[in-house]
Design a protein around this nucleic acid. Structure first.
Lengths: 187, 187
DNA sequence: CCGTACATGAACACGATGTTCAGTAATAGA
DNA sequence: TCTATTACTGAACATCGTGTTCATGTACGG
């Protein structure tokens, strides 16, 4: 373990200001449309200061996304079992609706969506492993992508509809679809 | 029907050049990284000319994507039944691998992915309607998003892996997942 | 052959990026 | 409290992409 010296108070403050400003701007104009200029204006921070902390917009966002990953992993620990993150994420999304819509909704940029997809896929893979999913690793990977993609799409749709349906209902439907499929005879 | 006067030969030529140049650049550097400058350089076309035809990069791409939509709809007509587009798309993707990877793979921009997702979702909705899917329209929509998201994710993964597995196998697995789900007891 | 529609390319204003640097302030540690 | 260190500032700068304009040249259709 590297000795993690507690960072200078100014550093903490600046990073916090920048992260908060980014989220506020993303909600306001979307990720792609948000410029570094917007962020530093909102945060009241010098231009040079931004680049002293983060090489670009993307890295700044990534630093913030670690929190979400942590939260989901934690919830998964609390509520074990496959798709343990599902309900947790749906509820978390609803209580941060504007942010989620900006990040994972129809208007968001590609980069963020991919990151979140990866997070979900990783969690799902843990689930499948724990269940002793039979089949080649390749098949497991395919199933994991299937699951993550499906979940992301449902989440996106739900958010874009205003997240009116209760999380429990969405969670239930997703589970049923994942479990039994459409339960329709396909060709 | 509007009388579709056949366009000036120069117009056809210019539009073709621009579309081809865009695809070439997307394969080379990805959609986001491709600039209008790149496109007109590659196409050997004046800057003003570009903007005389398309307001921006996005519209140029959209004009091209109509072709794919047409092709998928056509294939669906030929091979009716749910998920009729699945195998067709997988095969089409494999025979245009670099382009597909650039467009729908991990490196692509958000805009294109959303467009393709929409195309697939629309096709899937036709399938479900034809099958007499029971349940509220809202539930059907959710199922459609689920299906499209899952398919897109699998396609993305497959492409990023180099599309080594045969399309028929992927198609079969996707069908099974959609039909029966993971066939695992979930909590 | 001629009038029209299109292509050209250069110039322009604008805005965003990322870097540099000298000056100033806040901080941690003694 | 004092001091060396570290961080922030703000302005300037080069670079690049965008989208518009316009006068000029040229290929097209009829």
């Amino acid at each position: 373990m590297a000795k993690a010296k507690k960072p200078d108070r100014r550093v903490q403050r600046t990073r916090q200001l920048l992260q908060d400003a980014l989220l506020a701007m993303v909600i306001e104009k979307g990720y792609d449309a948000t410029t570094v200029q917007d962020i530093i204006d909102r945060a009241n921070v010098g231009r040079a200061t931004f680049y002293a902390h983060f090489p670009d917009k993307q890295t700044l966002l990534t630093s913030r996304l670690e929190d979400l990953r942590g939260l989901l992993t934690e919830r998964r620990r609390q509520a074990p079992g496959p798709l343990g993150f599902s309900l947790a994420m749906l509820e978390h999304a609803r209580s941060h609706l504007p942010l989620y819509r900006a990040i994972v909704g129809r208007e968001s940029g590609a980069f963020i969506v991919q990151r979140i997809h990866r997070t979900i896929a990783d969690l799902a893979e843990l689930d499948l492993k724990a269940l002793g999913f039979k089949g080649a690793p390749e098949q497991r990977r395919l199933a994991v992508e299937f699951l993550a993609g499906a979940f992301m799409a449902v989440l996106t749709w739900w958010l874009d509809e205003g997240a009116t349906l209760p999380p429990e209902e969405i969670d239930g439907i997703v589970r049923r679809l994942v479990m039994q499929g459409l339960a329709i005879k396909l060709a």
